[in-house]
Amino acid sequence: MGNEAVAQQAATDNETITPEMYRRIDSIIERYKDKPGSLIPVLQQAQDVCGYLPHPVQRYVAKGLRMSPSVVFGVATFYSFFTLVPRGKHVIRVCLGTACYVKRSEEILDKIKAELELEVGEITRDKKYSLEAVRCLGACGLAPVVVVDQDTYGDVAATKVMDILKKYE
């Protein structure tokens, strides 16, 4: 990210992470602070609260659990479940498991990338969609699979995927 982008992101973070959210994180930390190995569940729940894990939240958790922020950053960036950037209003997940790959799910992903002008892990400029590639959702019988928010779509054709997305405004 360029400097401008960093500054912009920081401003967004301050806006989206409310004092109420920090209070909820406090109670999560309180529950886990004496339990060994609790960083990952704390981060999972903090992400549930905030939607993502920006640096201020990571530092806040580090302080609460008496850890170095670098340890928290290390864990937050290691696991694919954690995201450091906010998600869009609708999250599109394209399965790239082997069964879906064999049925050409990559073409679906390419189509979405081209149409929405974004890469995997990014969010559209209007913040409407974010795009994720996932490894096997365990619904191989329906391959290729695309999940939008909580809805699973099976047997998706690359040429038809944009029609599905139109339903999510």
Binding site: S38, Q44, Y79, S80, F81, F82, R135
Partner: peptide
């Protein structure tokens, strides 16, 4: 929290340790 390498036993244990 999503890491394929955690299927390896020592990595899985490191993960439980946080």
């Amino acid at each position: 929290a999503g890491a394929f390498v955690c299927g390896e036993e020592t990595a899985l244990m490191a993960s439980i340790e946080g």
